[in-house]
Amino acid sequence: MTTKPSRPAVALTTLGSGGKGNIAYLQTKNKAQMQKLLSIGAIPGVHITLMQKFPSYVFKIGHSQFAVDKELAQGIFVRVPVPK
């Protein structure tokens, strides 16, 4: 597989709404939080689109949309592809 040029991974919360990227890794305070993220399919490698940041974070993974609070959203780190 060829690796696309990319920037270092950043927290999902730092993207603007409409921002897209691939989840690089998850980093949460505890196991329970990680389990919650895994259960909604926020798994490294998947494509994620941030749709909204306020009052909660709404993002799209595959064909599903999810809403999470800031604490959980901070645990998702994404790699945003460099624009062509």
Partner: peptide, 9 residues
Amino acid sequence: PSFYMEIPP
């Protein structure tokens, strides 16, 4: 509490 929920169509 922490909040996570699917937003169905």
